[in-house]
Nucleic acid binder design. Structure first.
Length: 388
RNA sequence: AACUCAUGAAGCCUUG
């Protein structure tokens, strides 16, 4: 039983839901009735892979095995269907849940919130609001998450005044906006370049008794970075330090990324050093950003040196790190160097992905040697890689 | 144990 579970979890983690499902077959053959945990795990695996028909198949399997799907099972499916753009198919599930007289099956807060999020993701906020009404009708009051999700949707759509009005709406429902509520709002303003408003929210949330956290500040840093306002971005970093909020690795990475995009490797490097001085250890992402900074200034060798620097700190460069450096060589037309790195990836056990392949193909075509993509294509086939 | 909301990395082929 436990061994089966471990097997299943292993396959699911490795994103091989088909193999996980095979374990279920084995269990049945061995006369061990798959428990709900196992079935849920497999179902989850299919959902994460976006294979919703298979996931729904597991639901049927549960029923035939006499295993009662509970609300969380349905929730997983609803989320998956939403991500697959099949929200319409959730109505059947919701009906089944509502029809149940088992409290464990009936839709819960998460069910509705997942639905709300699904509709919001496809920009159908009106549908999302309908779900709000529906949940009240079934005796479940919307919570902070429900409202945060709505705020996010309006924010994304650029309807910032509507977003703000949802905040008052939730307050009227005796719900206190939390860190995330303000986080979503700040993000929305940043996305639309309204940095003044975003900054003002920091003070506003304080007056509301919610202390701005590191994520809020990081979001604002990112906002300035996207507007290419590096001085302001840096000021936010200093402001947070002054405000008693410790910048984290993401704060510095975000700032560094701004310099990377600007092609200023020296400034990027300074940020990395500053981060170390602040006692924060750069992680793989941080180094990848620095690699990008060197790449954008065509300093491929400096970028490549980072691989060793990372290893010294027992950090393992990943596919993004490699692809970044590789693209540098590609853009310089040095395809031998790019291929050297590409082959090196296999040796260190970092399998290339679609981005890597595309970068190389692009590089060869730029270098006017399209026939050399042969090795890459065969490598792709051998590893069973298909463009994601 | 798995299910809902905010922050950082790869020249990206639904945005000019």
């Amino acid at each position: 039983h436990d061994q089966y579970m471990e097997l299943i979890n292993g396959y699911v983690e490795r994103k091989q839901p088909a193999d996980a499902e095979l374990v279920l077959d084995e269990m049945e053959d061995d006369g061990a009735l798959p428990r709900a945990v196992c079935l849920n795990a497999v179902l989850n695996g299919w959902c994460e892979a976006g294979r919703m028909d298979e996931a729904l198949g597991v639901l049927e399997r549960m029923k035939t095995l006499g295993c009662q799907p509970i609300a969380s099972t349905y929730n997983t499916l609803i989320k998956g269907l939403g991500k697959a753009g099949r929200l319409a198919d959730t109505t059947v599930l919701l009906k089944a849940m509502l029809a149940s007289d088992n409290a464990k099956v009936r839709p819960n807060l998460r069910t509705f919130n997942t639905l709300i999020n699904g509709w919001c993701e496809v920009g159908k906020v009106d549908e999302a609001r309908r779900v709000l009404g529906m949940m009240r009708g079934s005796g479940i009051d919307p919570d902070v998450v429900s409202y945060n999700t709505l705020i996010k949707a309006y924010g994304k759509a650029g309807q910032l005044e509507r977003a703000e009005s949802i905040v008052t709406e939730m307050e009227n429902a005796y719900l206190r906006p939390n860190e995330r509520t303000y986080g979503v709002l700040v993000k929305s303003y940043c996305e639309h370049g309204k940095m003044m408003e975003a900054m003002d929210l920091i003070d506003w949330m304080r007056t509301k008794g919610v202390a701005p956290n590191v994520t809020i500040y990081n979001t604002i840093i990112q906002g300035f970075v996207q507007k290419r306002q590096m001085i302001s971005a840096k000021r936010v970093l200093e402001k947070m330090e002054g405000g008693g909020v410790q910048p984290d690795v993401a704060s510095f990475s975000t700032l560094m990324n701004g310099w990377a995009v600007a092609g200023d490797a020296e400034e990027a490097r300074k940020v990395l050093e500053g981060m170390k001085e602040a006692g924060i250890a750069p992680d793989v992402e941080a180094y990848s950003v620095l690699a990008k900074a060197y790449s954008r200034s065509a300093r491929c060798e400096d970028a490549e040196v980072l691989l060793a620097e990372m290893t010294e700190q027992t950090l393992e460069p990943n596919v993004v790190t490699y692809t970044t450096i590789l693209s540098c060589y590609c853009s310089r037309g040095q395809m031998e160097a790019a291929m050297r790195l590409f082959r090196g990836m296999d040796e260190v056990g970092v399998p290339p992905n679609g981005y890597t392949y595309r970068t190389l193909v692009w590089g060869f075509s730029e270098a006017k040697e399209p026939w050399k993509t042969e090795e890459i294509l065969s490598h792709m086939e051998a590893s069973g890689q298909l463009p994601d």
